[in-house]
Simulated assay, not measured.
Amino acid sequence: MKRAGIMMMGLLLPLGQAWSAEATASTGWQMTPFFGYSSSIDFEKSGDVVQPVPLSASLDSLQGQSSGNWGLFISKEVDDPGMVELLYSHQSTRISPDQPDRLTVDMLHFAGALILSDNLMAPYIGAGIGVTRFAAYDSEVTPSMSLALGVLPRLTEHLALRAEVRGYGSLVNDSNQFLCNPDNCVFKVRGELVTQWQANIGLTLRF
């Protein structure tokens, strides 16, 4: 975990412009609304929960199903080839096996992207640190981090596409209650690193 944190901080430092010097008229701000597809999230049951009814004895894990997501980047170009940015992502999905409540996942990260080459596709690597909010029967806010690989091909001086694959890791607390049905609490998530992947595509406005 310490090594991953050092890697993220190293990626967040050398950030800067996403486009070449021909577009110097802009202020260097970007806004990118995006939509995408989120992988499933697997939750393992905490050993502290005592099953009160025989029918729930086999409930050792729950899964937030894969589904669509949407979100927003607000980015600022800096002196080196890349960006510093604020990232928000939202997902609402079903819980499997079926549960009465849905699971919502909201992520807010301070992030950055390092442009690897100023060619047509403008490939980049990114990293972020922030928080994730899981909400079903209750809610839990946990620290989280992300790593990304993407491309940022220009369409015009002020428009570009943005496509990326981003992996998230969220540290869930042992005392969490967000998957604990208050009428019959048979499941608490085991405290661990919960992971998820997203594939996102958006349209970037540069101004």
Rank of each mutant, 00 (worst) to 15 (best):
T24K: 06
L179Q: 05
N200P: 14
G64M: 10
Q177V: 06
F187L: 04
M31H: 03
E44R: 11
R102W: 04
I6K: 10
E192S: 13
W19C: 12
A57F: 14
C185V: 09
S67H: 12
P54E: 10
S67N: 13
V194H: 03
L193H: 09
I41L: 09
V172P: 00
I74H: 01
H158Q: 14
G126D: 10
N181W: 01
S38Y: 11
V84C: 00
K2F: 15
S139R: 05
S175H: 09
L120P: 09
W197M: 12
V53L: 03
L108F: 11
L15Q: 08
L55R: 05
A4D: 06
F207V: 04
P182N: 06
L87C: 05
L12V: 00
E85A: 07
P54T: 04
D118Q: 15
L193F: 07
T93F: 13
K188V: 09
A4E: 11
A23Q: 15
V50E: 01
F43C: 05
E85F: 13
F134N: 01
D79R: 08
K76T: 05
R102N: 13
N119S: 13
Q177G: 03
G5R: 13
S40R: 14
L87Q: 02
V194P: 02
G68L: 15
A23E: 10
E22A: 11
A111G: 11
T24S: 14
Q63E: 15
E140L: 06
M9F: 10
S58R: 10
G126K: 02
W197I: 09
R94S: 15
G167L: 06
V165S: 07
G47Q: 10
A122E: 05
I74F: 10
L103M: 04
K188H: 15
R133P: 12
L120R: 10
H158C: 04
P153W: 01
L161S: 09
H158T: 12
D48N: 11
I74W: 08
L62P: 11
D48S: 09
D174E: 12
D174I: 01
G150M: 09
R190C: 07
R190I: 02
L155P: 10
L159H: 04
S46R: 08
N181G: 03
D42V: 13
D138Y: 07
H158P: 03
D60Y: 05
P33T: 03
V78A: 04
A160E: 06
L203D: 02
I6T: 06
A127W: 00
I129K: 02
V151M: 14
V172G: 01
V53D: 07
S56K: 08
Y124T: 02
P182D: 08
P52W: 02
Q30A: 00
Q99H: 06
S58E: 14
W29E: 01
L171K: 13
Q196N: 15
R102T: 11
L87G: 05
A199Y: 15
S20M: 06
E140N: 03
K2L: 12
F110W: 03
A18R: 10
A25Y: 06
S39Y: 14
D79I: 10
T204W: 04
G28H: 00
G71H: 07
M83T: 15
A18T: 14
